[in-house]
């Protein structure tokens, strides 16, 4: 259920900047706030952590967005909290064992 407050640095190219703002306005999970200079406050409200991350990546990839920084995150009741859960402390298995099981799908979009 992440609720995040972001500071988006916009491009100084008018067309790209305007396109980025339009994209934000049309994205229902984003709420636009104050713009000051090149910087704009944005709140993201998504259903789960992976969606939050995906939305971040989409926004970051826009030509009119130079950088996104974070000012706030609420992660109460985050239903993805066990995504990387390792086995219990008693067994002391490596958490990376879990990473290996998921790497093929994840790395396709995020890594080598």
């Amino acid at each position: 259920m992440p609720v995040s407050g972001w500071v988006v640095t916009l491009s100084d190219r008018p067309a790209s900047r305007a396109a980025a703002i339009r994209w934000i306005d049309q994205e229902p999970r984003l709420e636009r706030g104050v713009i000051s200079g090149q910087r704009m406050a944005v709140v993201a409200d998504t259903t789960h952590a992976a969606a939050d991350r995906e939305l971040w990546s989409q926004l970051e990839s826009l030509p009119g967005v130079v950088m996104i920084e974070v000012a706030f995150i609420g992660f109460e009741d985050d239903d993805d909290s066990d995504d990387t859960a390792a086995p219990t402390a008693i067994s002391l298995h490596r958490p990376a064992d879990r990473l290996l099981q998921t790497e093929q799908t994840e790395s396709a979009s995020h890594g080598p």
């Binding site: 609720v3 706030g33 609420g74």
Partner: peptide, 19 residues
Amino acid sequence: RAFLKTAAMAAATSAVNSR
């Protein structure tokens, strides 16, 4: 949830303004 969104916007706005 509404409270958290308000807090998130306030924090982001504050960061924009403080810079």
